[in-house]
Design a protein around this nucleic acid. Sequence first.
DNA 1: GGGTAAATATGATTGGGGTCATATTTCACC
DNA 2: GGTGAAATATGACCCCAATCATATTTACCC
Lengths: 200, 200
Amino acid sequence: MSTAFISEETLLSYGATYKKVNKGDLIFMEGGAACFYYQLVEGRVRWVNINEDGREFIQVMIEPGESFGEFPLFDDQPYAASAIADDDCVLLRLHKTNFHQMLRSNYDIHFNFTRLLVSRLRFKFLTLRELAYNNPEQRISTMLNYYKRLRGIEQKPCKLHLTRQQLADMTGLRVETVIRTIRTLHERGRLTIQRGKVFY
Amino acid sequence: MSTAFISEETLLSYGATYKKVNKGDLIFMEGGAACFYYQLVEGRVRWVNINEDGREFIQVMIEPGESFGEFPLFDDQPYAASAIADDDCVLLRLHKTNFHQMLRSNYDIHFNFTRLLVSRLRFKFLTLRELAYNNPEQRISTMLNYYKRLRGIEQKPCKLHLTRQQLADMTGLRVETVIRTIRTLHERGRLTIQRGKVFY
DNA sequence: GGGTAAATATGATTGGGGTCATATTTCACC
DNA sequence: GGTGAAATATGACCCCAATCATATTTACCC
């Protein structure tokens, strides 16, 4: 998952172009029409829904090598969520028609793409079940595990690159609840807090 | 969505076989290994997670023409959820290797399959957002809308083929809460209750 | 190093859905 | 048409996360 999903060379050969965006920039917006395949090269992207009150729900945190915003390329419906640069980012953009050309002419890419969708669906299945039935402690633990696994299976605890607010925005809990729960997990030795940052 | 996703003839030509299952039968179980592509021909299938306490979380209700349980065919991991016949069913089963053969030799089928995954992901995005932030009323309304749309866009209210318990198992609420909420929706004229059954 | 915004922390209070108990209705089946 | 199981209904009470208010720590920048 940490290696590029489709190699940069391949994308470039089909006409993809690099684009830089600054931290906080909106890459595309929920409800809008789409004509690009996006793949993150560097940085991090929040793929989020924002409700009327301005509250965010983070669907996925996109890491380098992953694609995002690809639904509309398949069903011609609007974007299901907005993409916001969580950091300064470099991304690759490939036009819809070229993207389809690429899938059509290369079975392995198409198949790998399908695999990515399946892994996303698995994650959603898992999350949904957690959100539906579990207490804050389990919800948060599940998220921590997921985002740890993404970084390879290094067993050593390392600094979590998510704020309490972001964890809240992924689990449907409130910041205060996340803070209190993480405190509890710390007291139980399930994770470490150093200068307020979580090590897991 | 109501038409068969891959035509029966096509599936049969690749060696698929029919199978009947009775209401309540387990078709496959969460955590198990998979070697078949399944497509529902007749009846209805609950695709669910069951937790330690025996509570179900319904991920999707499968309608005729839809496939289910296809994740393991792409990533060789176990089933993400169990499939239970919600009614007497007829299904088509295609062996994994033949399924892959079919995708490889027919771009359109592969593409359509990808489209199905995308539509599932959209549904999951929607559901997750709802579960995370909304009150029972909105959660239930969202589910009602989704399962109404599946049956074509007939605007006339028709009988909902979901029990209160099943709605609870999809939204992470308790039966009593669903019952009370549906009552409220009825009082507000958002739906009708006749002999205890919901018309929407 | 001092200033400042963001992130983390913590207490007090509240409210909404969960839980439990029990009743009533619906419907399939003989 | 009577019977029993499943589904629906309803009240009373409770608990836990949300809410609100405020304090403290961390980190970044001139």
